[in-house]
Nucleic acid binder design. Structure first.
Lengths: 209, 209, 209, 209
DNA sequence: ACTTAACCGAGACGGTACGTCGTGTCTTGCC
DNA sequence: GGCAAGACACGACGTACCGTCTCGGTTAAGT
């Protein structure tokens, strides 16, 4: 991703110098990402061809390759540029309520059209370190940072022991969702999420000792 | 899979009539499966080509296609033919011990060379229903059946409530392992497994009400 | 050109062993050559694309590349497989008559549709040694061998001195044709050929001393 | 070629008004032509790309396209700007001496590095009428005009018949050179030129009748 | 000195063809 | 009739140039 630092600065004065040459077409960039999501949702990862993306976005193939090294990076970017920034954690005053509410949002996305995209990224990531890293950096960590804050609120309220292993706890909450999402041996229902949340948070509380 | 029912009779009575023509080469079949596993472990799912498999196994491409309809079926078969499946549950008298011991075996395999094959199947399964089904049928369910028995022993010992949701419990135990295995955001260590097991089983016990 | 030695021998007995594998499709080969000539005559060298040839011949692109390393070799082969083997020398009893008759045939071809193909080969040959060599080996030398015979008949009839430099003579006869053909500064007419022939043969006779 | 009529007036009268704006960079123009010749001599016609020329001349691609409509025009211009054209005819008092001397100069150039450029033009000219026309207009005719004068001197000296067909004669002299130059079936040596010249001029003299 | 406008370099753009690779099918002769 | 070998039609790959198009910056002539 060699996107050049844009000409933006906080003070607005000593703005970053832009190199020579025709600047990148923002329109093309967005069109490509849009077409990627569209075709990915329609046909899945393996049926997605760069050729189709370029054609759908009315763009030269080279323009795609100029900015994304491979299909995986393209998908990761498209995914990141997407509505990803939803999925925030509420603050209801109850840890279980906060968590289960957000988790229900997660499974809503996983079971929707967008779920195919997540599955495609996780699948592609198994043979592409960059892709799975992109998933972690752009999807997992941002959300987890919010989750930490939510958990800390729970600790301060006494809903969790102070020394709780937050990563263990969060993996225990989300792991089963990912597992059912990927292996598809059982449904991802809100009821499942509720019971899962209750089970794990109960364990975490008991776990304090 | 149009493999013909083999002449599987020891008693010599209901021996399946075998038509004319050269019989299927068992040597070729095994060579293909062996090469599949070898290349899959070496290069991952997307880099595995039927062409390479055939070449590595010193076999004609048509011989591969004659017996397996696609890459996914081939991988599924290769995986099933693998020794991976000996992941049995012990009976130590303690539920947590039984579970954590087996789970440590699982992560041992997941973090070994063979893990790549599992990852390849789960990855390929995201765009191939048959493949993920094969994983469930040949890997997940057999093990889960044993797990049910283990859990039932725990129930009878009073380590778990009688009405425990076994699938929820097992997903809570294994989900985090799959999540870490696939997303690789944290290590799969025996210590993690132990704490995970303790957390979830504590929650399950408390969950009884 | 890795065409394998065909299974042909004179005695018909110890015929050449043909290797394993599906034999080359003669139909595809001829279709490709035919399409090449067709498109070459229609659009010229630089507008000829392998892609179009393959499409026109209803053949995969790879089949073209399997047997011809580049456009030049393809054209050379197509040209050689063509009616090239016309252009024979008559034996009228008069050297000038023999030569001018054949030369008139040459300019007839050069000024016809097929001329574009010859021009394409000579043009391509300027940056491709193999191509110009192919032209020499498959077009120039076979004809020149016949020309030598014709000249020798002329010598035996006393129409030429015994020690005539045959290559100098033939280049003097055909060079002007090639020059006019390629530079197009003057027309290639039968009258031109006749006068050229008369001029050069007169010079050759006088040249004896 | 939309080059604007330059301010080509020495007398200072009909001086073309030059509007405002930066004038064309003569340095860029010459650099482009120089790079064209350099790359053409190095790699031949088909390997010459405008992109390479621009890069080699440290010039923007658009600057090339602004002044030359296509590769052929560029090559033609580069060739014309070259010093190749000083191939004048001497006046030794002997026709054969005048001709053979100039012809030896020609083959010297044809067999030198610059020959590749001539070959490239003749090659490119086979698929581009403008290019071959440029060759005729800028190379062939200027020289031929001098040749006519040389021949006329020969006629006045009685070395040639009065009614000699000068174009036939000149094509007979130069055609073999072009033929050997382009087909490369025999060497272009001074000895060859001498014998060729003797043969053809002998024929022309005899041809008078 | 200031405006105007065509030039310049750089380089991204929509395209097209390239030559390669893998797919799944087929056609041989041998076993 | 299975087998190895390998050619086949097909289609996507990622690259290279094409000729065009913005950009910011430069360079005069005309105010």
């Amino acid at each position: 991703m060699r996107r050049r630092a844009a000409a933006e600065s906080k003070d607005g004065k000593r703005r970053r110098k832009r190199g020579p040459g025709r600047p990148r077409s923002e329109q093309a960039r967005q069109g490509i990402l849009r077409s990627t999501l569209k075709l990915l949702g329609a046909n899945g990862f393996s049926d997605l061809t760069i050729e189709d993306v370029a054609a759908d976005a009315r763009v030269g193939k080279a323009t795609v390759y100029r900015w994304w090294p491979n299909k995986a990076a393209l998908i990761a970017d498209a995914f990141a540029s997407d509505t990803t920034r939803q999925l925030h954690f509420p603050d209801t005053g109850s840890l279980r309520s906060d968590m289960s509410q957000q988790m229900r949002q997660v499974i809503k996305i996983f079971t929707s059209r967008r779920g195919r995209i997540v599955a495609a990224i996780l699948a592609g990531g198994q043979s592409d370190k960059e892709l799975i890293k992109a998933f972690r950096d752009r999807f997992l960590w941002p959300r987890r940072r919010e989750a930490y804050a939510t958990l800390r609120r729970g600790i301060s309220r006494g809903e969790l022991p102070k020394n709780v292993d937050m990563d263990l706890l969060l993996d225990s909450l989300y792991g089963p969702i990912y597992m059912r999402f990927l292996i598809r041996h059982a449904d991802l229902t809100p009821a499942f999420v509720n019971r899962l949340c209750r089970l794990v948070l109960a364990g975490a509380w008991l776990h304090r000792k």
